[in-house]
Design a protein around this nucleic acid. Structure first.
Lengths: 138, 138
DNA sequence: ATTGACCTTACCACAATGGTAAGGTCAAGG
DNA sequence: CCTTGACCTTACCATTGTGGTAAGGTCAAT
């Protein structure tokens, strides 16, 4: 199976499959005599795993850890769970941050009449330095 | 006022102030004879506006539009409101996406006993291709 | 005159993905 | 046998917003 088919089957673009290989997230694939990448059913299984993990928002770095746990039959499920809980916390933090933004902005926006006049509570709100001091790096 | 003070006062790093100037988000600042950037009270006002808008999650591109509306006394508040509503939608979409991830992952995680055994519903869930087909580009 | 704190520009880096360009390969059909 | 089109290869650049570093200039105080 060539990379194009593997891409279609896994839902990961060919571009990204090559990239994942390049950064060592997945093993180097076998090659045809002409140098084409060849994917087995097993390789596809791995790609699907990566795709699922990406869909849940895990970073490539976290996925690297997940993959190594996945492939380790001696793993403790507590290690997997710890990784998952940590990611859930990241998601919760991000959701909280975005929700705070949303609520502040919503408040300003409902106050804005939104007609052809220039007076605008949104812009006035942005002038105040108190708008919200979040913007943590996450 | 030098860039360091302006940075401290506005909450935007000196690095970023230079960058915003470089990409044309803010006007080029005046310079001292030695080439140091000089910031007036008015410049600081603009920087604070940018800071507030960043805190609400507006992109630099959106902030460019906000700034031009802010400085346009002929503006219609409806234009500002449209921009704000569009950003609220972006935030809502992102929140929904992250919440979906969070909920799926939470489901898998509560099923995982998290002890020293290898059996793990989280990894099993990631093997299934059905984990969630979101990951829209936003 | 030296020192330390500031400033300048010009690069490189991140994460994850997309795009493009220049070229090789392969199967089908003339 | 040769062409065509669809595929593959590598290598580079762009994105977004921010941080870092290096090599050098400035300035105020000692």
């Amino acid at each position: 199976m060539n990379i194009g088919e593997a891409a279609k089957a896994s839902g990961i673009s060919a571009k990204m499959i090559r990239h994942y290989e390049g950064i060592g997230l997945i093993d180097q694939s076998h090659r045809s005599p002409a140098g084409y990448r060849i994917y087995s059913k097993n390789d596809l299984h791995t790609l699907s795993f990566v795709k699922s993990a990406r869909s849940l928002g895990f970073s490539l770095d976290q996925i690297k850890q997940l993959l190594s746990l996945w492939q380790d039959r001696e793993r403790a499920s507590s290690d997997v769970k710890a990784l998952a809980l940590s990611h859930i916390k990241e998601l919760d933090d991000k959701i909280a941050e975005l929700s705070a933004m949303r609520n502040l902005l919503q408040n300003l926006t409902t106050e804005c009449h939104g007609d052809d006049r220039a007076e605008c509570p949104i812009l006035q709100g942005l002038e105040q330095p108190c708008v919200g001091a979040s913007t943590k790096k996450t």
